[in-house]
């Protein structure tokens, strides 16, 4: 029990470019998720500044940060966070509904996204009927369907076995290359680390190392 302030991130100075496939790596409590939440405009730094797609997080109103998340940011969560009462199709359709995209176009975009992740045969299934790998692929389709500029993935493989982890990582890598979407992973999973092209090691809220891997 303590009453003092906890500093999750300290002295961070990072820039992410278009089309990056980056891992923010560190043990639990190192500040990975906090960093991802700030980039995702779900949290605001108590000090310092964060610019997301040219906009200062601190200056965003609740409506403008929601608008930014709605159109430019995609999220993938460790436990998938799918809507249990919706079908696969409806889950993927949700971000497009929020954007008010018209039905025919919406349908095509959802089918495209499901094709990217190889789940066109599961459109009528409910999340409870899917395996962990399939659920995470639905989550990827939901994050990608609106063609966001940045996808933030918090421990996306934590609940998956090795085969499924590689499968979804390959899917994300492919989407990253084809659509030039920036992927930022918060992870300490070696499998994810083996895929990323930039590794940012966080320790006690500070950047311990920032490495760019040449995979060519």
């Amino acid at each position: 029990m303590g009453s003092g302030k906890f500093t999750a991130l300290n002295g961070i100075d990072l820039t992410f470019g278009k089309g990056e496939f980056t891992g923010i790596i560190g043990p639990s409590g190192s500040g990975k998720t906090t960093l991802l939440n700030i980039i995702g405009t779900l949290d605001v730094p108590s000090e310092g500044s964060a610019l997301i797609l040219g906009q200062s997080v601190a200056n965003l109103t609740p409506a403008s940060s929601a608008a930014l998340r709605k159109s430019k940011l995609g999220f993938i969560f460790q436990s998938y966070n799918l809507f249990q009462v919706h079908t696969v199709f409806e889950n993927v359709e949700f971000p497009l509904l929020l954007q008010g995209i018209e039905t025919a176009k919406r349908r095509q975009m959802v089918l495209d996204a499901l094709e990217w992740v190889g789940l066109t045969d599961k459109i009528k299934s409910r999340p409870a009927q899917l395996s962990g790998g399939e659920s995470q692929r639905v989550a990827i389709a939901r994050a990608m369907v609106k063609r966001p500029a940045v996808v933030l993935a918090d421990e996306p493989t934590a609940n998956l076995d090795a085969a499924n982890s590689h499968n979804i990582l390959q899917t994300m890598e492919k989407l990253n290359r084809e659509l030039q979407t920036t992927f930022l992973f918060a992870t300490h999973d070696e499998k994810v680390i083996s895929y990323v092209r930039r590794k940012i090691f966080l320790f006690d809220g500070k950047v311990a190392r920032d490495e760019i891997i040449d995979k060519n």
Binding site: L42, A63, A66, A67, R69, F75, N81, P95, L98
Partner: peptide, 16 residues
């Protein structure tokens, strides 16, 4: 709670 958080993450305001 998780669902509410997901709605917000996907772009809904808390008012919505």
């Amino acid at each position: 709670q998780k669902e509410i958080g997901t709605y917000v993450a996907l772009g809904m305001t808390r008012g919505e």
